[in-house]
Design a protein around this nucleic acid. Sequence first.
DNA 1: ATCCGGCAAC
DNA 2: GTTGCCGGAT
Length: 239
Amino acid sequence: MSGGVTCELVAWAAARVDWLREGLLGWFERFGRCFPWREPGRSAYEVTVAEILLQRTTAAQVAQVYPDFLRRYPAWDSLARATPAELEGVLRPLGLWRQKARALQRLARSLEERHGLMPETRRELERLPGIGPYTASAVLAVVYGQAEPLLDANLARLLGRCFGLSQTLSRSSRRRLLQALALHLVRDERSLQVNWAALDFGTLVCRPRRPLCPCCPLRSACAYALLLEPPATPSAGAP
DNA sequence: ATCCGGCAAC
DNA sequence: GTTGCCGGAT
């Protein structure tokens, strides 16, 4: 009933995740992306704002408005007092600007009530407007250095493909499996690097469409790549 | 023309 | 649990 795999991965899966982690870290050293919100020493405010801006939005778009956003609204109080029209204007290039403006301002006002102090538990974080499970994980991981998996669509796709998770799995089964795999993946001193590696890798290599399997460094351990690749045809002259 | 993407509201 | 929010990518 407790479903062992959801709490503790079987050995072969754990070993495969360990291998994936090393592959991702190696790839990240060469091809990982740099973003201002990944710079060390960013405040809870700067990190949280970035994560809200990034919800259902590409990093490249967010990078274009982020510096200006921080210049105009350097802390929760200035954001709380922002003119909605100006705020929406700054966010317009991102799309979802009406929703993001509203969420950011409601969040800023909630945090002012807490004297700008960010909660340190998932439970408290998820009570804040605009902060759901993913963004709470991001704050725990980036601000507080916890080994929390950033299980967004990128990491879910990456793990789903590598482990060949069947589409016939129920959503809850799939979720639990992904959660267990992701937890093991970031159970490491370099958990934040692993998370960022997975997100970049999911965007640049293990893309939703036309993934770059032929040059993927993880393909030898990937069910999806093995399924797609033609089974090594014996060369013409082979015995 | 369709896919992609976190959260809140319904 | 389904739908709406918005643009960009394909």
